[in-house]
Design a protein around this nucleic acid. Sequence first.
DNA 1: GCCAACGTTGGC
DNA 2: GCCAACGTTGGC
Length: 156
Amino acid sequence: MAYWLMKSEPDEVSFEDVMAAPAQTTSWFGVRNYQARNFMRDAMRIGDGVLFYHSSCPEPGVAGIARIASTPYPDQSQFDPASPYFDPKATPEQPRWIGIDVQGVARMPLLALAAMRTYPELAEMVVLQKGSRLSITPVTPAEWRAVLRIAGLKDC
DNA sequence: GCCAACGTTGGC
DNA sequence: GCCAACGTTGGC
């Protein structure tokens, strides 16, 4: 089992939106970065833990706990000319981008980015590194446990 | 709105 | 294959 941090702009999809969705499950689509795509395609497994992170908002930080809830599948928005995520070079025969289902698991008090930076055990988190802007980053088991402990959650 | 950092594109 | 130009991300 692996752990991940996934960034979402709460104006687009907030953690509360995920919790309010049927089966607390939403399709994670619109990733247009190869490294992030490859994580979804090659490394994610159903049940992997997800730190759901809010970015580009007044209070960036980890907003909730989620899990990977499907295997990867073609991101339909790449075929839709009306979508901002349209990719003219993608075809249904040769899809370029993929999505995956994410299911909300537990609410937690926002662990703000500024607070995360104060914990030595989180200092090596990829998302905290200078210049890091990848929308999906790996989280170590120790970092995962530390976030849950800080958030006051038992293992999930 | 600013701007540093990074990824992608495309001419050569 | 190089690399300058450009576009995007995302905290502040």
